[in-house]
Amino acid sequence: METKNVMIVGVGGQGSLLASKLLGVLLTDEGYDVKVSEVHGMSQRGGSVVTYVRFGEKVNSPVISEGEADFIVSFEKLEAARYVSCLKKGGKIVVNIQQIDPMPVITGAAEYPENVLEELKSKGVFIDETDALSLAEQAGSAKAVNIVLMGRLAKYFDLDKEKWLSAIEKTVKPQFIEINKKAFELGFSS
């Protein structure tokens, strides 16, 4: 099987590391060779963050570059646009429609591009929009945005839902399992 590439992008502090951990556990359990590449440190302070998840028979590079991503899961609209050049032709973007203004926008040095998702669609990009923040709040915690989006991504994966739920049990702290399972279900069925 050809190596599959999933990018998880967002704003530092949104919980992308947990999402990549979940994917890592799930795909390793499925018997794939897996590589997950993260960036820690300075960029976690509200900066743009990207995590790469690659799986297949044998994975070499830990990173995903131009035109290679089968999926981009974006925790924020602008970040989907930032990394779109990494998307493979025919790849899919799963995006949380939340808008988080970066500091240059807050200070007025730059403008948040209006209709950023429309522009992507006009370029022929497949966009699956979801209000992950509302669904996460509905599940019981605004912090569960990451798992809502994993639920959304799961729709495009040929894997039983039960396997995802079992990976959630292995990944999150016991006291948060129920909230996260609910968040996953909401993302999956919305």
Partner: peptide, 15 residues
């Protein structure tokens, strides 16, 4: 590989 390019630059998001 083929890739999508946007017309306008995306505002940076520094930490």
């Amino acid at each position: 590989p083929e890739s999508v390019k946007l017309d306008a630059p995306v505002p940076v998001r520094p930490p």
